[in-house]
């Protein structure tokens, strides 16, 4: 029974994930695409929960959904509703064909790897304890084994913040710079 339930939840989440991803890529209005991405992120959080990554799931919702997507929506609202009449056109004639071919190739290769090369490796997940994926376990890992990653990530965030401020600032000379450029 529990297995069946897990399968149902998984299928539902997977389906939502793929559908929202396709929606992101296909809507012509960027606002709708951003909203579809929020749905994508939520379904991914569900999948993380199924994989016993509770902290990561929470982080996904908070950081991605709460911060990143809000930023996206603010910018889209700021820039106005500029949606393309023909979102899929433009570019060289071989672009569409090449893109589908490359994407399909990658997909096929992954399936080949999973099916033929990986053998039965992917069918035997290790046994895990109760504290797997808990905040306590991750926190300990961050501050002991992966301290450098932790520190570097925080510096990256700092740099990004500074960059964002610089890019978004109003310099007084901008109009003349525009006229000269």
């Amino acid at each position: 029974m529990a297995n069946f339930l897990v399968w149902v939840v998984w299928l539902f989440a997977a389906f939502a994930c793929l559908a929202s991803a396709l929606a992101v890529v296909s809507f012509s209005n960027p606002f709708y695409s951003a909203l579809a991405l929020i749905g994508n992120l939520a379904s991914l959080a569900v999948l993380y929960l199924l994989l016993s990554g509770e902290f990561v799931a929470a982080g996904q919702v908070l950081v991605y959904g709460g911060a990143v997507m809000v930023m996206f929506l603010f910018v889209i609202a700021y820039l106005g509703d500029r949606h393309d009449e023909s979102p899929w056109s433009g570019g060289p004639s071989w672009q569409v064909f090449g893109a589908i071919l490359a994407g399909g190739a990658i997909l096929a290769e992954v399936c080949v790897v999973v099916g033929l090369k990986a053998g039965g490796l992917l069918s035997k997940p290790k046994h895990i304890g109760r504290s797997f994926g808990s905040p306590e376990a991750l926190g300990r890992a961050f501050l002991t084994d992966h301290l450098l990653a932790f520190e570097v990530t925080s510096i990256v965030l700092l740099v990004a913040a500074v960059g964002g401020v610089v890019l978004g600032s109003h310099a007084r000379q901008e109009p003349e710079a525009d006229a000269r450029a």
């Binding site: 570019g91 060289p92 672009q95 090449g98 893109a99 071919l101 490359a102 994407g103 190739a105 990658i106 290769e109 080949v112 790897v113 090369k117």
Partner: peptide, 22 residues
């Protein structure tokens, strides 16, 4: 000069390299 074409080149290269590694 189109970003998208270069992105296509990246994807294509990835596909080919994967085959090579396999």
């Amino acid at each position: 000069g189109l970003v998208r074409s270069y992105a296509l080149a990246l994807a294509g290269g990835l596909a080919v390299l994967t085959v090579v590694f396999l």
